[in-house]
Amino acid sequence: MWRALASNALTVLVVGLFMVGGLILWGQSRYKDAGPLETAICLQVIGGSNMGDVSRELEDQGAISSAMIFRMAADYTDKAAQLKAGSFLVREGASMEHIIDEITSSGASTCGSEIEYRIGVTRIQTRVRELDPATLDFVEIASFDAAEDEAPATYTEKREDADTRYRVSVAEGVTSWQVAEALKGIDALTGEVSAIPTEGMLAPDSYDLTAGDDRNAVLQKMQDRQQLRINAVWESRQDGLPINSPEEMLILASIIEKETGVPQERGQVASVFVNRLEQGMKLQTDPTVIYGVTKGQGTLGRGLRRSELRRATPWNTYVIDGLPPTPIANPGLASLEAAVAPEQTDYVFFVADGTGGHAFAETLQEHNRNVAKWREIEAERQSSGN
């Protein structure tokens, strides 16, 4: 009898162990397999939430099949206490394993709202955007010029959201003074700008910010990135160029940057200035004259006067020989690369062609014909009011 009881108990124990093992395997499968979510969502985890709150929210939105398994998995992997506040993109079909990793890793929001400050040559634009989980595209919900417009309520609301992300984008061709002044007006930043960075030493690019970042730290990040670019590009330079240092490369790149906004023209524009330097010709480029007038503090806002073209300043390349003493703006990477790898041409002249680009010439006679065409275009535009 005791043997029979022991045998039955052993059988029950074995069956129970198999059932427990099966449940564990089933739970692991549910944890790792693709989830039921059909359309991506943006999950907001509010500060002070716990895994129980999050699991119920995910179950309600159809992102997971079992809130209980989700909580148990978070506890089992010791990640329940690592929950971060923020807004997180949960893609369609995301597994519980992936979701837990997403909400417990860096804490950086991957969806929700973003405020971007765009520093351009002529204006500073603030854009408020939200990620559409369905398309994974940012949708603009507000935009304004801080120098001219009052900040809309949407901007104020998003500034108060703890999980709003921030970004500052610097356009090619802006001056260091313009960047520093723009940063002074960004209310998400703190601290006073201690000094205007050296002209040309800020890398035009997009930079992630955190609310409360120090303005000087942001400027230093831009300088560090530009220095890395300068070092790398200088090492890749062609032999025999009429520039003798990274500083001269930076000056030439800044002139190229200000002379054309057409990417495919940069190599040709670079070739004109390289050819002129090699032949001992004056560069005769208007943007350097403008810099001599404004010192990089804003835009001129009008055409150059004849007196300004004749006025002697360190940057007036109609008067001085060779390169000016400093860059005239912050050049982007493409202009730096053009400065050390110009196209091989015999061009020594160029003028606007009316399409946004330029007409290039090897001889003065050919250049004069191009200038005459450009003046005809200008006259037509003035007569038609364009």
Rank of each mutant, 00 (worst) to 15 (best):
E59F: 14
L89D: 01
P327W: 09
D163R: 04
D53H: 04
K295H: 12
R276I: 10
R71E: 13
T355H: 11
E97I: 03
S176E: 11
E160R: 05
V139M: 05
L13N: 00
V90R: 06
M281H: 05
E366L: 01
M281G: 06
G35S: 00
D33K: 05
A211Q: 15
N330L: 12
A153F: 06
T154D: 06
A134G: 12
Q284M: 10
V54N: 01
D321Y: 05
V54P: 07
E97N: 10
Q223A: 15
Y76M: 07
T198F: 07
E257N: 05
R237Y: 12
T122N: 11
F144N: 05
V233L: 14
G112M: 11
V45T: 03
S55F: 11
R30Y: 00
F18H: 01
A352I: 07
Q279D: 03
I24L: 07
N370L: 05
A153G: 07
G298P: 11
A182G: 15
N8C: 14
N370K: 04
Q279K: 15
S113R: 01
Y166D: 05
S105Q: 00
A334P: 00
N316L: 04
T294M: 06
Q284A: 09
L252S: 08
L277G: 10
A81Q: 13
G301T: 14
P314D: 06
S106K: 00
A80S: 11
Y76Q: 13
N368W: 10
W374P: 08
D137C: 07
D78L: 02
I251P: 09
G86I: 04
E308K: 11
S271R: 11
N8Q: 10
R306E: 03
E378Q: 14
F88W: 01
I124E: 11
Y76P: 02
L13A: 08
G21I: 04
N216I: 12
I124P: 07
I100G: 13
S105T: 08
R167M: 14
D239K: 14
Q238N: 15
A9W: 11
Y76F: 12
L283D: 13
A108E: 08
E376T: 07
G322N: 12
K79D: 08
S271K: 12
S95A: 09
A34C: 03
S106Q: 00
K221W: 08
Y76H: 08
E380G: 15
M68A: 12
E57K: 12
R118T: 02
G200P: 08
E172I: 02
A195V: 12
L89H: 02
V14W: 04
V139Y: 00
P152Y: 14
E130M: 06
E57N: 11
S307P: 01
Q264R: 07
G296E: 06
E337V: 13
A195H: 11
M96Y: 00
I251C: 09
G173A: 07
N330V: 09
R369F: 03
A338H: 13
W2I: 14
